[in-house]
């Protein structure tokens, strides 16, 4: 199946843009109302657990975006359809922002819960490494002057990074059991009450809408960039 992007598709994306922005803001406001006012404070953690409603969706989408990024790079190598390259390049920076947000909010959540800003646990460390993988992908593309080559090279790097993430997760897990077994038991997630699932669900949808909106804006941006590169050559 060879999908080709033509002007009709771009017009469709363009016309959908204001609705998407409106929907994102609307769902975020509902999510904020539910997460700050409607949901009860946690039995153990009190009100500090409200940070979860933004931390967990951003961590999910950080991982999901990298999976889409690596998956579309693989598909690009298999099918040679340039659409996948454009998708990978438009989604990468959104993923970087979500990764950074999950790191920052997680760190702020960690201070009242664990008493420290940072714990050298497998999940946190692999998230930090993921952030640097995003940076490597984005800036390697910018560093190579031949853009056609740059896309191929950075796609190869994204796939290698995707192989690297589980290895790092495993090795840091192993390293943790060696050095500080106590800190992991603190991190085990308690079962979530139903009243907390509703705001979490709404915030997840809101973050997903944000991801789609900004990726589509970046999609148009990358297409124009590609066209300008082609005319300048």
């Amino acid at each position: 199946m060879y999908i080709k992007i033509n002007n009709n598709h771009i017009e469709l994306i363009k016309s959908a843009n204001p609705y998407l922005i409106f929907a994102t803001i609307f769902v975020f406001i509902i999510g904020l109302y539910y997460s700050l006012f409607q949901s009860p404070p946690d039995y153990i953690q009190g009100d500090s657990m409200r940070i979860m409603y933004i931390h967990v969706p951003s961590a999910w989408f950080a991982l999901m975006t990298y999976s889409i990024l690596a998956g579309s790079c693989v598909l690009w190598f298999i099918t040679r359809n340039p659409l996948f390259n454009v998708v990978a390049r438009s989604i990468a920076q959104v993923g970087m922002v979500f990764t950074l947000m999950s790191l920052i909010t997680g760190s702020i959540w960690g201070k009242p819960t664990w008493g420290v800003w940072w714990v050298w646990d497998a999940r946190l460390t692999s998230m930090l490494i993921l952030f640097f993988l995003y940076i490597a992908y984005i800036f390697l593309w910018q560093a190579i002057s031949n853009k056609e080559l740059a896309s191929k090279i950075s796609a190869a790097l994204a796939i290698i990074g995707f192989i690297n993430i589980p290895i790092i997760k495993f090795s840091v897990d192993w390293w943790n059991t060696l050095h500080q077994p106590a800190s992991i038991s603190k991190l085990s997630a308690p079962s979530i009450d139903e009243s907390m699932l509703i705001p979490l669900f709404i915030m997840t949808i809101a973050c997903f809408l944000f991801l789609v909106t900004v990726s589509l804006i970046r999609f148009r941006l990358v297409l124009i960039e590609n066209k300008m590169l082609r005319t300048s050559n």
Binding site: I129, F132, L133, I135, A136, F139, L140, A143, I144, S145, N146, L149, A150, I153, A156, L157, I160, G161, N164, I167, I168, S171, V172
Partner: peptide
């Protein structure tokens, strides 16, 4: 991979250090 990116030793370090972690 980075033959085309000249004078980017910092970028190369950013690419390599996550791979060195294990």
């Amino acid at each position: 991979l980075t033959l085309g990116a000249k004078r980017t030793i910092f970028l190369k370090a950013i690419i390599m250090i996550p791979l060195f972690v294990p």
